[in-house]
Simulated assay, not measured.
Amino acid sequence: MKNISRFLVGFMGVALAVSCTDDVDKRQPVSTDTAPTLKAPATLSMVLNHDTPDDLATTFVWDYAAYDGTQTVVNYSIEFDEAGNDFASPVTVATTISKYQNFTVGELNSAALNAGFAPFVASNIEVRIKSTVGSLGSLPQYSNSFTITLTPYPAWPNWGIIGDATPTGWGSDTNMDYDLTTHLYSITIHMTAGGGYKFRLDDGWSTNFGDDGNDLSLEANGANIPITVTGDYLIVANFSEVATGGIEPKHYTVTLL
C-alpha cells in the first residue's frame, strides 16, 4: 500500500512538473518595442520656389524607435501620402539611420512630385516615419503623422499658352501639363474664335514659339496661331529635338473636342 502511495505521489509530481513546463513554453514574450514619434514640423505650408532650390526648406525630426533583443541599426523611412488616404498608398521619399532629415527646397519639391502631387497645386500631404531593423527588414513600426501643405513647381521646363484666344488673354499664361512617359506637353482649354495664341517658356518672352505657316510646326518667335472656331481644344506639343509620343520634334497637334 505504501508503495502504491509513493507511486501516486511521484506520478503527480512528474505531471505537475510537466504541466508547469508546458505553461512556461506557452507564454508569449512581452514586447517593449516603441515606435518612433514624429516631432517636427508639426505645421508647414509652403509654396516651393524654383529660384531657390538649394535653400533649406524644412527638417523632419523624430524620436528614435526602440526594439527588443540585440541592438542593431534601425532604418527610418519618411513616407508621404495624400491626406485622408489613411496611408493606403504611401511613397517613401527619404531613408536614413538618423532621427532627422533635412530637405532643401529642391529635395522637398522632388519628394512631392515623386509622391504624385501635381505642380502649381497646394496639396495636403500626410507625413509619417516608418522604422525597421535588420538587413531583411522586420515588422515595421509607424509613427504618428502630421499634415503639411506644399505647392511644388515642375521639375521640367514650364511651358504655357498665352494669347487673346485663351481665357486669360495676353495678360498671363495657362500652364500646360507634362507627361513623364511621352515627354509631351498637353492642355485642354477653351478658345475663342478670332483670336490667336503662342507657346512660351517660364511665363516670359525670351523663349516662345508660334507657327509661321500655320502647318503645325513650331518656329521660335513665330506668328500667332489663329483660332477660327470657338470651343474646347486639346493641344499637344513636342518642344524637344527628337520625335516622341508620335509627334515630330517642334510640332504640335490641335483637336477641337
Rank of each mutant, 00 (worst) to 15 (best):
N3M: 13
I4N: 04
R6A: 14
G10E: 09
F11A: 15
F11P: 01
G13R: 13
V14N: 02
A15N: 13
L16D: 08
V18Y: 14
V18R: 04
S19V: 12
S19N: 13
V24W: 15
V24D: 04
V24Y: 15
D25L: 15
T34N: 03
A35M: 05
A35H: 05
L38P: 04
L38G: 09
T43F: 06
L44C: 05
L44T: 02
M46E: 12
V47F: 10
L48Y: 07
T52V: 09
P53I: 12
D55S: 14
A57Q: 07
T58Y: 05
T59G: 01
D63F: 04
G69K: 09
T72R: 11
V73F: 11
V73K: 13
V74C: 12
V74A: 12
F80A: 11
D81E: 10
D81R: 12
D81G: 09
E82T: 14
A83L: 08
A83N: 14
A83G: 04
G84M: 11
F87K: 03
F87C: 01
A88E: 12
S89I: 11
P90I: 05
V93A: 01
T95M: 10
T96Q: 06
T96C: 03
S98Y: 13
Y100R: 15
N102H: 07
T104Q: 08
V105A: 06
V105R: 01
L108R: 05
N109L: 05
L113P: 04
N114V: 07
N114R: 10
A115D: 07
P119V: 05
P119M: 03
P119H: 06
V121K: 10
S123G: 03
S123R: 02
N124T: 11
V127N: 04
R128F: 02
I129E: 00
G137M: 03
G137P: 01
P140K: 06
Q141G: 09
S143I: 03
S143M: 05
F146I: 02
T147H: 12
T147A: 09
L150W: 08
T151R: 09
T151S: 01
Y153Q: 01
P154F: 05
P157Y: 05
G163F: 02
G163D: 01
D164S: 08
T168M: 11
G171W: 12
G171P: 00
G171S: 11
D173W: 06
D173N: 12
T174V: 09
N175S: 14
L180H: 09
T181A: 14
T182C: 10
T182I: 09
L184Q: 02
Y185G: 01
S186Q: 12
S186K: 08
T188V: 13
T192K: 10
T192L: 06
A193T: 05
A193V: 11
G194S: 04
G194Y: 05
Y197I: 06
K198Q: 12
F199P: 00
L201M: 10
W205N: 08
T207K: 06
N208D: 13
D211P: 00
D212N: 15
N214E: 10
D215C: 01
L216P: 00
S217H: 10
A220P: 00
I225N: 09
I225S: 04
V229W: 04
V229I: 15
T230W: 12
Y233Q: 10
N238I: 02
F239M: 07
S240I: 00
S240F: 06
S240L: 03
S240P: 00
G245P: 03
T253K: 11
T253D: 01
T253M: 09
